[in-house]
Write a protein that binds this DNA or RNA. Structure first.
Lengths: 194, 194, 194, 194
DNA sequence: AATGAATGAGCCTTCATTCAT
DNA sequence: GATGAATGAAGGCTCATTCAT
């Protein structure tokens, strides 16, 4: 039951997740305490524990929600009628655009993946979201449109490269316009295409 | 300088750096306290402060030393008599091999680069080590051997990709033999070559 | 009063008292929080505050109810027609049996009596229940059946000894059958009899 | 190495133990926080953790030291040349006197024994101190000087009764002079003697 | 009568750091 | 050069309690 009468629906849990995201993206896990998150969300620190069992759970849940959002965005406009080659390029474009538009999400993912929070277990839970992606890649690989590479390498040349680019864009080391994004897509594509 | 008197050189400072590296690589900044570093190095926590002004300085100095080692390794066997194209491929090969052989260094670099410790300032100090690398790339670009891409992008498709691959190798997500490393070099090369 | 309408009388207040008793007996005051009590009673923590002004009141009320139950049990089958000596022994037997049969009550009383919750005030309120007991003892003392000892000492050799025995029985340090209980009664009786 | 030059040797660890003892005796486990202990000992709370791994360890160590002190006191002046009967009475007298003289120790032991801190394990560690006591009792039992009772019951009529009496004395419910103490010894002795 | 949400205060513990020795 | 002792500050978390619904 949402609180009615209020135009601004105050979903405390979402508020906490957002606050944590912003802080971690900018100050890292190390620099983000529960009390800072609470302050950023304008609530008491104790309130966070109504929604999350602890800091770890908060962070893992945040990661999952972000990763799911990313997966959805990648697959969102994947028109299955267009050629496989175009679908692949579209996918790469989507990842880059999505992460560039959401620097905090991008920064958070990068930190999480390289931290001790990252466990195989967590990724297994997200497995179902990867299914369509994997299928797409396998088809492309089978139809000899792309090189026959291990999944992990495919991830490197799509997700990780996009992530790296988004980071460099955010820090100002790399300027990106619509055209240069397309150029980056070309580079990625050259890497994996046959 | 006691190095010449003791057969077992007990360089406390190096001991501390190594301990910090191992711990941060495995437990992250968040999970690595000064006292843990001290315990890992078998010394008192107070002793660390004889060599480093504080935690931040320790970490930054560690980063610099690792990054310098990496740069040196990349350029170490760059024979200037071989064709430029081969020099480029050799460089890529070197990065991947170096990071795969040193998972802790790789993990540390990845974490540091994505953390608030990372400042433009620090990288400027390392600038001189990048010089030769940049020159090489500029020559290749000028001679139309590789695409004309911003430096940042070149970094993505060399250092960052190698880093990503090393990480996947360490976590077990990607098996790598001498042959598959060469395959990866090909993929990287396809990305940037003209 | 809904007791007559519902076959299963759901007396929330009693539920809370029972939950608190079990938890405190097993985990101590220190380990028993209001939220744990609520969870054990399958209600919301806030609900407890409908029945008790606070934690202290809950605990004190619990103590009183248990102590009253104990007193009643002691005096329940005290047949005034039998010899005073037998009445005294019966009393001792009752205490031991009662506490052995209710390890949680026994444990709670022991903890409460030795905690800062224990105030002279509380015992004064229970005074009326002690009346008959005291009278019995005074008569026995006057008739030279038992030694002339201060009330406090009498308590030690009846209530406290029984309590100690019940605890040792519960922890497994002391096996007790109907016969050995009688043996214990003998020991207690030897202590106070003239 | 003790700090020399200072007439008042400041043994921080002992200071902490004493502070914890006083507070727990008066305010219970529940009411005794580490910061209170620190304040009572006039040190920082963090300092406690140099000497104890945590609150539990502090409490258990405190218990052991107190219990050992008690055992030693009981056996201290047990002259083996006097009759066994007198040795037994002496022992009882010692316990009562020791606990009466140290109300905090007495209160602490009572609370600990009835709390979840109390584990069989802890008592096993103290087992060696009980040896001589048990031997004494067994001899008395074998020589038919006392009743043949389980060890647990013997404990009840010596340690626990003394404890109960000390508590009642401390709360003012029972006045005790040298003579009445002897009277109490008589009562205890009547309980166990044959 | 019952509760989900919320919180200020406090708890146990760890941290990075200092300093006398 | 090295360290044991000490600490203020902060960390994550739980507590007893309130209140609108």
């Amino acid at each position: 039951m949402q609180k009615h009468l209020s135009p601004i629906t105050k979903d405390t849990k979402a508020l906490v997740l957002r606050a944590a995201l912003n802080l971690i993206a900018e100050q890292g896990f190390h620099g983000t305490s529960m009390s800072k998150v609470a302050k950023e969300a304008n609530i008491s620190a104790a309130t966070i524990y109504h929604y999350f069992a602890g800091k770890d759970e908060l962070i893992v849940e945040l990661y999952k929600s972000i990763k799911i959002g990313l997966m959805r965005a990648i697959l969102a406009d994947l028109n299955e009628t267009i050629p496989l080659r175009e679908q692949m390029r579209c996918m790469i474009r989507n990842v880059i655009r999505y992460l560039i538009a959401r620097p905090h999400e991008a920064a958070f993912i990068e930190q999480f993946d390289r931290s001790p929070y990252n466990t195989t277990m967590i990724h297994e839970e997200l497995g179902s979201y990867l299914q369509r992606l994997t299928t797409l890649i396998e088809r492309a690989s089978h139809e000899q449109i792309i090189k026959n590479l291990p999944d992990a390498l495919m991830e490197t040349f799509t997700l990780d490269v996009a992530s790296s680019i988004a980071r460099k864009h955010t820090t100002g080391a790399l300027e990106l316009t619509d055209e240069t994004v397309e150029q980056v897509v070309d580079v990625c594509w050259d890497a994996i295409r046959r």
